[in-house]
Write a protein that binds this DNA or RNA. Structure first.
Lengths: 229, 229
DNA sequence: TCTAAAACATGATAATTGTCACTTATTACA
DNA sequence: TGTAATAAGTGACAATTATCATGTTTTAGA
């Protein structure tokens, strides 16, 4: 038997919770479940999306290519998030690429269902508005961090963020394992510079590493660092 | 006689154009026209807004203080824009401060009118959604620029942006005159560094200056510079 | 119109980060 | 399971930008 949205807890975390039974049924009937393997794209910058993705499991990075050819990660998605809303609402090409960071399970919901519901259920519109508003606020914060903080500060912040949002395993390593390259693309730095900083943080005892895995040892120190001592 | 929204052309440029006669009347009856002098704040980061501002004339900067005490300008508003939507929708404190860059004329619209209309007119919701979606896309672009481009590139880009969006006067100077400090806060650099770059651009003949006024001389060169040669 | 404050400007120097050129691990898979 | 391919790591050096100190010009207001 297929998974039904009606029974899916995930929807409590996103704007779909504003749907009534009927609407939910329509979404459920038209949705397509997909599994995306680590490293595979969900969609690519410049593509026209004909629906949104509801993240059941796994993490993805939303990124954008700069004119210099470097990738910048703008956001990491959380479980329960809806991706591609902006593009569907604006009837516009995606401005971002989405790539799975670990194996993902997502549901694709065709845009017709979304826009119909937007037109008929004001509560749903409001929920979507709130989510966009939230994303916009977060984007503002990122802008300020990117322009006013040093790479070192942003890296410290990234570790704290990853710990807070994705937690750590039984050995104290961050649950979300990113490549050094991804870290560089999050904080907006050259990979070599970033690797050097990780080495330095490790030498100073703020973090520990084991292969790609990184564990936060001194969260308070990192926080101070992020705030500029 | 008071200015009525019904006769205001400005609303064609923003989400208020989705309102019907009745709704427009309500907005018009409850709105308060305000004049804000250059340098004065419309609202301050952390404040609770009980309405939105519709910009009839003038330009303002939306900025945010960084933990290091420096101001970062996130966005310049255009004529016809609605400010404070995000905060009203999310029923949240503003995350940004708004300050008039030149003398402004704005209309304050109480939030009740806005949220009532959001609940009853799906077209209005959609318009607001589209605007937020647009802002979000622009914010993503800023993030990428901030993290992947050099200060020099961002400055070149800023000049082009100002020319495109606000035009120039009869003598070829940018219509929108910003302080060196504001420029620094837009591109996210130290004021001294920025002044040096302006001097350099001038010496190279890309721009001309006359007091605070700046004129673009070689737009193509600036564009190439912004794109990284 | 005089004067203090603010804005603009420049020099010297230091800190931060990027680039290029490699070496060493890891990983994937033929 | 051996071997490319990919990722991680390091050194030397250059480029970019910040900081501090100080001087000059402009502006606003008594």
């Amino acid at each position: 038997m297929e998974n039904r949205c009606e029974n899916c807890i995930i929807r409590q975390f996103n704007s779909l919770r504003a749907l009534n039974k009927d609407e939910l049924k329509k979404v459920s009937d038209s949705k397509i479940s997909k599994k995306i393997k680590k490293g595979e794209p969900l969609f690519i910058e410049g593509q026209k999306l004909d629906g949104v993705f509801c993240v059941r499991d796994g993490v993805s990075k939303l990124s954008k290519l700069s004119s210099n050819g470097k990738e910048q990660i703008v956001k990491l998605t959380n479980r329960g998030e809806i991706m591609g809303q902006r593009s569907v609402i604006a009837e516009d090409f995606t401005n971002l690429s989405a790539t799975a960071i670990n194996d993902m399970e997502v549901c694709f919901i065709p845009k017709e269902v979304i826009s119909n519901t937007l037109n008929t259920n004001p509560n749903f519109s409001l929920e979507v508005l709130r989510h966009l508003a939230h994303d916009l606020k977060e984007a503002d914060d990122v802008i300020v961090n990117m322009s006013q903080k040093t790479v070192r500060q942003r890296l410290a912040e990234a570790f704290i963020y990853l710990k807070k949002n994705y937690g750590e395993d039984e050995n104290g390593f961050l649950s979300l394992t990113l490549s050094r390259d991804d870290y560089a693309n999050i904080v907006g730095a050259a990979t070599e510079s970033l690797i050097r900083m990780i080495s330095d943080f490790k030498k100073k005892g703020y973090i520990k590493t084991e292969g790609k895995k990184i564990g936060v040892l001194e969260e308070d120190t990192l926080q101070e660092l992020a705030d500029g001592f």
